[in-house]
């Protein structure tokens, strides 16, 4: 009997895999104030699920494609009349609603909507694991390769241009990484909570970091601990796993905020 036969081990590996990719990317999402951008893109993923099932494509491919299209749509509409938060508010919820309506058209296909909205980490199979770790490795590789350029472009676009870096290209790298993370995380936490895995570990790591690299490492640690802790708590107390993981991350953020507050007082 192999280790992977245990559904708990598979769930743990899936959670850790997603955390490893989501936390460092989440740092950029936080630094560049892309939280709602991430949320809107994630919500669009449910439409990707519906399309994949209708066209009998792998869910991963459908979600990836729709997330990329959504990101492109946001970038195109940005700066054309509506403020960014209005635009994202419209697109995030419209995408979710369209996705839910599209799913209802899928007759004959039995689809567990809850599994896609909130994730179903305990049902992760070997193929899912391969997708999660493969996609996660792509995200980490992309971030490691472009790290300095991404940071420079995040600081200031003109500074990037003057150093021979095209900030628009770096933005596309981030968008691609974001779409990949959404596509691999949907099984673990579902479309509604993916943004939480990106943002909360990074936000919790901030008070303890002096450099961007350290923040990424600490965020990753918090993400991994949240995934494993959430899985354990959910197993012990029979709570939904995805939301429990996010709850643990939220506790980490609270603790970190309190520590930061105390440090300021002293």
């Amino acid at each position: 009997m192999s280790l992977l036969d245990s559904f708990l081990i598979r769930a743990a590996l899936a959670g850790v895999g997603v955390a490893l990719a989501a936390a460092p990317l989440g740092c950029f999402v936080v630094w560049r104030r892309m939280a709602y951008f991430g949320e809107a893109t994630a919500h669009a993923a449910i439409l990707g699920v519906a399309l994949s099932l209708a066209l009998e494509l792998p869910v991963f491919a459908g979600v990836l494609a729709v997330a990329l299209i959504m990101a492109a749509l946001i970038s195109t509409l940005n700066g054309r009349g509506h403020s960014v938060d209005t635009l994202l508010g419209v697109l995030a919820h419209a995408a979710l609603a369209i996705g839910l309506v599209a799913v209802s058209f899928l007759q004959g296909v039995r689809i567990d909507l809850m599994a896609y909205l909130f994730g179903d980490i305990l049902a992760v199979g070997r193929t899912d694991l391969a997708v999660i770790w493969g996609g996660g490795a792509c995200v980490l590789g992309l971030l490691a390769w472009r790290w300095s350029a991404l940071l420079t472009a995040t600081l200031n676009p003109d500074l990037a241009y003057a150093s021979g870096i095209n900030p628009k290209r770096e933005e596309m790298v981030l968008t691609l990484a974001l779409a990949l993370v959404i596509a691999v995380a949907i099984k673990v936490v579902g479309v509604l909570l993916i943004a939480a895995l990106l943002i909360i570990p990074a936000a919790a790591a901030r008070p303890f970091a002096a450099t961007p690299e350290r923040m990424a490492v600490i965020a990753t640690a918090i993400g991994v601990v949240s995934a494993l802790g959430g899985l354990w708590v959910a197993y012990q107390s029979d709570t939904p796993t995805g939301p429990t993981i996010v709850c643990i991350a939220a506790v980490a953020f609270t603790v970190s905020s309190v520590v930061r507050g105390l440090r300021r007082l002293i």
């Binding site: 630094w31 600081l155 450099t211």
Partner: peptide, 13 residues
């Protein structure tokens, strides 16, 4: 939200 020491900043890119 972006932690950045002076030395790290000078080392970019």
């Amino acid at each position: 939200t972006l932690p950045m020491t002076v030395a790290r900043f000078l080392a970019l890119p």
